[in-house]
Design a binder for these strands. Structure first.
Lengths: 206, 206
DNA sequence: GTCTATACATCGATAGAC
DNA sequence: GTCTATCGATGTATAGAC
């Protein structure tokens, strides 16, 4: 039975959990470099030395926090695409998926801060960026691609590329409107984007 | 005649330029919080005190660097869409724009680091994020939207939404493949994406 | 195991000589 | 204007008591 990683402590106390939660709060609020171990200790209500008895150093704690967040967000992302029957109207199915994704992403400040960190630190923590790609982006794209591929009413030439188009459109919309605070500069209703997007997909004829 | 901003010195010496270049290098490499004024001074080959005689503090220096970068990148982004005649085949025009944008973004490490900072710091520097939206994203979207709107062979119902789809697809592709190091996890050829995307736009029938 | 106290480096920013 | 030298605060990490 293999222990999982880092130190000998995945004996997962309440302390470990408290540390991870405090660290998550601080990293999400201030980013990696600007988050301090002192503030994390205070947020977790433990001493700094206790943190270092559970995690090797700041980098490893950060890595553990991000991997926890990826796991959390996996549920949320995947649940959006579940239970989609091939018998329903694809225009309605796609619209519903898109609208749910947009409204979820927009109200979830934790998700936006999570994306900020993944993107902002992707140069210094490439393996964490790849964890995001492998565990969140790829499953979302693969699931949607499979749906587009197998629906009898859709005749898309390249379902994988089409899935990239749908998800890229939605994610960049959230980035521009919410994360980059662009909604007053570039206003656009959710419905207009979703309608144009699903129309392009559904009405496509090779 | 109004001086432009910050201090009384937009008397733009060689020193000011050296400071901005050194600061750009350090901020792009390490992000805002992890970049130090000492390292910036060394990179610019001036003393730290000289920096503070040209800029109020670290935040203001950062802001000046980002605004310089936005100006630089504006040229690059806009030149991609220029000189597109309404008489050419839109499929070819759009493909060319998309291919140029992808190949430029992929080889420009400075651009990728610039995007990392804009996104990563958008929570703590919302006004800089909005500068990006106003000066880069909006012009790109408006220009493309106007092209899609006015081309006689295209019958898109919502040109603005269509422009968002095109640009969102391309930007998220660069984010996933390059910035997040996903190209080995989610491989996809440029041409397949561009072809699927331009096909959707060009073959659309209301 | 968890704490307090502290070591030691580096941070942003400034004083004062020239 | 630009430098050297330095301030006080804060950073990560650890030693040692319990």
């Amino acid at each position: 039975m293999a222990k999982n990683n880092s130190k000998e402590h995945s004996r997962s106390n309440a302390k470990t959990k408290a540390i991870l939660e405090g660290a998550m709060q601080e990293f999400l609020a201030h980013g990696y470099a600007a988050a301090s171990m002192d503030k994390i200790a205070k947020a977790a209500q433990v001493s700094k030395a206790t943190i270092y008895s559970h995690f090797d150093d700041k980098e490893q704690l950060f890595s553990a926090v991000i991997q926890d967040l990826v796991k959390d967000k996996f549920q949320a992302v995947m649940s959006l695409q579940e239970h989609q029957s091939l018998e329903q109207d694809p225009k309605q199915v796609l619209s519903q998926i898109a609208i749910n994704m947009l409204s979820n992403a927009k109200k979830d400040q934790t998700f936006q801060n999570f994306m900020r960190i993944i993107l902002g630190e992707s140069g210094r923590f490439p393996e964490l960026a790849q964890t995001y790609v492998r565990s969140l982006a790829k499953p979302a794209i693969d699931t949607l691609s499979h749906y587009l591929q197998s629906h009898p009413n859709l005749k898309l030439g390249d379902s994988e590329a089409a899935a990239r188009i749908v998800i890229g459109t939605l994610v960049y919309f959230v980035i521009l409107q919410e994360m980059l605070h662009g909604k007053d500069i570039l206003p656009l209703e959710n419905d207009r984007l979703v309608n144009a997007l699903t129309d392009l997909i559904v009405k496509y004829q090779p």
